[in-house]
Design a binder for these strands. Structure first.
Length: 592
RNA sequence: GGGCCCGUAGCUCAGCGGACAGAGCAGCCGCCUUCUAAGCGGUAGGUCGGGGGUUCAAAUCCCUCCGGGCCCGCCA
């Protein structure tokens, strides 16, 4: 990578000047000479020289990498102009995944309660988790994606109870998770709700024994259809009832009880309970104690989260897996008592859960440290994203105040279809194009902003196909593809014919790898999404460039040599956009 | 009471120690006899919430105040 090499050269030259310092190379502003530059002000004090003089000296001492045309001192900066041909060669290089590195990263995302259809709140979780999994894999990590099925939770129990209690029969047409979800909402509107608790309890116990698995599975399968439609990928399903039956909780508690920070107070507020003192690991707590096992003997959900985290990181074993029969994900495996033993032993985990779970997630990390594995605590990352509002209002699954993902997908597709039909009546497969564009609009809208910012899901914006959107990037891709399709085969490019237009586009192409690495490092896909918008914009500007009233950058009708150069650039651009979109789980249509 | 996060153009957001603060939407003016106008160019719009501080340099770091969101149960 160009920037890396420059930084390395600068580092060497500075060492020779008596400073072991690494400076960051940035892009030069448009109106300044050169393509990249470094500010040198920080060295002035150390070297007792004005930055301008340092720029001069650095230029003299610098052993320029072969791709640099010249180093230009500009005030306190030293800028670099790349050789055009080297720049183009770099831009034309195919963007391949980074070499594999050691160490498994386990990503848990989705983990939707198997009791009703997915709503737009889940959308952000899935889009973030799935994109991040793809980005990390491209960045060279070994990635395992896990989807947790809370089949012993209250939500699942209530839905199954409601289905039975109201004697509802499925008409065979409605999507099953929607049907089940209606029962759940009805239960919560029932004035008799409080009186129905014993019945719900009974279902809860049956679930813990794993007895109603098929009924839960029926809902899960319907949900998986939606996840498949969102182009989300999973490697493993882990059912909570399997964790219960494998006794992971007990094993986790055994480990925890060896810690001096885990105790059973004899008296006071926590008499009879098993508590954990998290104060050494979480500063500023008013009350340092957290209950793991209630005095009545029941474990808290913290304890279950901790046990599961221990399993993910190989501190516990006991789960078994087998292939999961389903029509959507051929290679998917599921936990099952009769399966083969497997423990991932992840060095790093990423739990994609909204911010409201920050506190419990901190306890999970504290527990790792407390059993003597601060290294694992360090590797346990909580990707905390802010909640999604619906048209400015908080959603509620219980009250049915939410828009389902299926509905959003359908509406997006309907709108996209109208646009395709209008803009491209000759399109050979409008349905498929509409599906891709709809998916692009929705997924992109979910990842283009920083996770820690609350987003408001508004139909008009999320399903917009103009401006800072997925379809904007997809359209840029389709345009490029259209040119390549018409070009047929072409010969070798003549790099020496490049104009400033090719230069600008090539420069934009160089930032791809850095964007991917930063997204992987910071664990946030928005960096890549923002880059793709920039790249698409650079391409659209190139495409539309005019000198006077004439097109400045025609590709197909360009003179020999330049034509091939432009085609090669367009091809690199098209592939880069496609790769980038794929890392966000978004398909790149060839025709729109 | 304790803790976490957010506050940048009318709206939605990038930028998070360096070169005059950038996009999209909305507004206004242009560009289809050009490889898809889902596009492009231009114009207008900003006390980067307020106030202190650190620094050669602050939207970016620290403190403080103000606004908004969230978390802090022997509930899940």
């Amino acid at each position: 990578m160009v920037r890396r090499a420059l930084e390395e050269a600068i580092h060497e030259a500075l060492k020779a000047m008596g400073l072991d310092l690494r400076l960051k190379v940035a892009k030069a502003p448009k109106d300044k000479p050169g393509d990249y530059g470094v500010p040198l002000f920080a060295l002035a004090k150390e070297l007792k020289k004005p930055p301008q003089a340092i720029a001069q000296e650095l230029r003299e001492r610098l052993e320029l990498p072969p791709f640099v045309e010249e180093a230009i001192p500009v005030g306190g900066y030293l800028n670099f102009r790349l050789k055009t041909e080297a720049l183009l060669e770099e831009a034309l290089r195919e963007k391949k995944p980074f070499p594999k590195r050691e160490g498994l990263v386990l990503i848990e995302h989705t983990s939707v309660n198997p009791n009703k259809e997915l709503h737009v709140g889940h959308l952000r979780n899935i889009a973030l988790g799935d994109s991040l999994a793809r980005i990390l894999a491209f960045a060279g990590r070994e990635v395992l994606v896990l989807n947790y099925i809370d089949d012993t939770g209250r939500q699942a129990a209530e839905t199954l109870f409601a289905l039975r209690h109201y004697g509802l029969t499925w008409d065979g047409k409605e999507k099953y998770d929607h049907f089940a979800g209606r029962a759940y909402v009805r239960l919560h509107q029932d004035p008799e709700y409080e009186k129905l608790q014993p019945g719900i309890e009974a279902v809860l116990h049956a679930l813990e024994r794993g007895e109603l698995r098929e009924e839960v599975n029926r809902i899960l399968l319907a949900q998986l259809a939606t996840m498949r439609a969102l182009n989300a990928h999973y490697d493993l399903l882990v059912w909570e009832s399997d964790i219960v039956r494998a006794g992971l909780l007990g094993k986790a508690l055994e480990l925890l009880e060896q810690s001096p920070h885990v105790l059973r107070p004899r008296e006071g507020k926590y008499a009879g309970a098993l508590v954990m003192d998290a104060s050494p690991f979480i500063p500023g707590l008013e009350d340092p104690y957290f209950v793991l096992v209630r005095s009545g003997g029941a474990a808290t959900y913290y304890a279950k989260d901790i046990a599961f985290q221990f399993w993910k990181m190989g501190l516990l074993e006991g789960l078994r897996f087998k292939p999961y029969e389903n029509p959507y994900y051929p290679g998917l495996r599921t936990s099952a008592p009769e399966g083969e033993p497997y423990t991932p032993k992840a060095r790093e985990t990423i739990n994609v859960i909204d911010v409201r779970q920050s506190h419990p997630q901190a306890l999970v990390r504290a527990a790792l440290a407390l059993v003597g594995r601060p290294d694992l605590a360090e590797g346990a990352f909580h990707l905390a994203y802010e909640t999604v509002l619906l048209e400015g209002k908080q959603m509620s699954g219980r009250k049915g105040l939410a828009v389902s993902v299926d509905e959003v997908l359908e509406e997006a597709k309907r709108r996209a279809l109208a646009v395709v039909a209008e803009k491209n009546p000759e399109h050979p497969d409008k349905e498929e194009a509409a599906r891709m564009v709809a998916l692009g609009a929705i997924r992109f809208a979910m990842v283009k902003t920083e996770p820690r910012k609350q987003i408001d899901f508004r139909y008009e914006e999320a399903l917009s196909f103009e401006g800072d959107t997925g379809p904007y990037v997809q359209y840029a891709h389709a345009r490029a593809h259209s040119i390549l399709r018409k070009a047929g085969a072409w010969g070798s490019p003549d790099l020496s014919q490049a104009t400033p237009y090719e230069r600008a586009l090539a420069l934009a192409l160089l930032d791809f790898e850095e964007a991917v690495l930063e997204a992987a490092e910071e664990k946030t896909p928005h960096v890549l999404a923002q880059y793709l918008l920039d790249l698409a914009a650079a391409w659209n500007a190139y495409y539309n460039a005019k000198e006077g009233s004439r097109p400045a950058t025609p590709v197909l009708t360009a003179p020999p040599g330049l034509r091939e150069l432009r085609l090669a650039l367009v091809q690199s651009l098209q592939r880069t956009l496609k790769t980038g979109l794929s890392l966000l789980g978004i398909p790149a249509p060839e025709v729109m």
